[in-house]
Simulated assay, not measured.
Amino acid sequence: MPYTIVIDAGHGGSDPGAVYEGRREKDDNLSLAIAVGELLSRQGVSVIYTRTTDVYQTPFEKAQMANQADADFFISFHRNSSEEPNQYTGVETLVYDNSGIKQTMAENINGALSELGFRNLGVKARPGLVVLRRTKMPALLIETGFLNNEQDNTLYDEKQEEIARAIADAVLGTLDLETVTEADRRAAETEAARPSVSTADTVTASASPRPTPPEQENPSDTPETFYRVQTGLFRIRQNADRMLYDLLDQGYPAFLLAEDGFFKVQVGAYRQLGNAILMERRLRRDGYSTLITT
């Protein structure tokens, strides 16, 4: 049977990803994802795209799509960004942890891209990322150079076909060398099924409900009050997303609430005010400005 690989173009729709001098990450991600997907399809791989047009999907929706398809691999395409233009350069690939076939595939991808002129920044474990944590198969997230680095953009533009070929060949080469073992799949499924510390696994859309509290609720005609710690209030979705992802990467039970024309980044949902206060103190120690809300 052929392998099934979910190809994910990061960001999209209302979420442009990184932006630099009019260049939007979501566009670069989509063009490269489709190019790699087409090359894999020609070699007999069954390819499923999370998107082929400019639409927004939450990270949780992408992971769910891959799980429902019972895919063998999940590969997400992104581009990196730094605080200052031309501050950093290079490619890196992110995985849930540094083990198994996903590690091998990530190293092969980075090595292939470095041969085209990119600096190899290595393979890094990022267990807080939803698309790596909640997928039930080996998953990778490729950061194909820095969007706000002129050298990386020149390579990206002049060698896009070669980049797509290098990634596809690295994936196919890994599949020739190894197969997804039952141990790989069981490990991924176990982690995906593990209860998350977060009250929400993803960024929510504007009509999303409030988060489900971590404890079981007792049926009651009177709605309970839950205390949440707010760390940010934004008009621009991208800014809220940035804070949200930072919090999730640090293991905080963070979520996004769209309300009254603003995007609110909040943490936790507690029945006891004292628990919210403890969380607030922890967040403040990590440098966040906070307030407790209900």
Rank of each mutant, 00 (worst) to 15 (best):
A71K: 08
P213Y: 06
G17K: 08
R23G: 02
Y245I: 13
Q87C: 03
T4N: 00
S41Q: 15
D157K: 13
A166C: 11
E25I: 13
Q160M: 14
K26Y: 07
T179E: 13
G22V: 08
I5P: 04
F234T: 03
E158A: 12
A188G: 02
R165C: 00
Y3G: 02
V6Y: 03
E38P: 02
G145Q: 06
D241P: 00
M1F: 02
S206P: 03
D54E: 04
T181C: 10
Q250N: 09
R285I: 12
L141E: 08
R281G: 10
E158G: 04
L132C: 04
S31L: 15
T190Y: 05
D54T: 06
S46C: 12
E189P: 00
P59A: 03
E115M: 15
M105N: 11
T135S: 11
I5L: 06
R51S: 08
V130H: 00
R24Y: 12
V55F: 03
N218H: 08
D15E: 15
S76P: 10
V123Y: 05
T225P: 04
N275Y: 05
Y20S: 14
G22E: 10
D221M: 14
Q57N: 10
D157A: 14
T181V: 08
A187P: 04
I109M: 11
G117P: 14
Q57V: 01
R23T: 11
E83K: 13
G128V: 10
R134L: 13
K102C: 12
E161T: 14
S82Q: 02
R51M: 11
A125H: 05
T93A: 11
E189M: 14
T174Q: 03
V45K: 11
T52N: 05
S114I: 03
R186H: 13
D15N: 15
E182I: 12
M279D: 05
L177A: 14
T50E: 06
S289R: 12
G37S: 09
T293D: 00
V123F: 01
T174L: 04
S46Y: 07
D201P: 05
E217A: 12
T293P: 01
A170M: 06
E83Y: 09
M137T: 02
Y252C: 07
E178M: 12
E61P: 06
R281I: 06
T104G: 01
G268N: 08
Q230M: 12
Y156N: 10
E161N: 14
A18K: 10
V180H: 02
V123R: 03
V131W: 00
R284G: 02
T212Q: 14
H78P: 07
D152W: 06
G261P: 03
N120P: 14
R284A: 09
Q230E: 11
G10M: 00
D184C: 09
D184E: 15
S46I: 09
S114L: 01
V95D: 05
T135I: 01
R134C: 01
Q216G: 05
Q250S: 12
T4W: 00
R133S: 10
I34C: 04
G17V: 11
A66M: 07
G100Q: 10
T52Q: 15
D27K: 09
K102T: 07
V229P: 02
P85S: 07
R79M: 10
T199P: 08
T202A: 14
M65N: 07
Q272T: 11
R235Q: 10
R235A: 12
A71F: 05
Q238C: 02
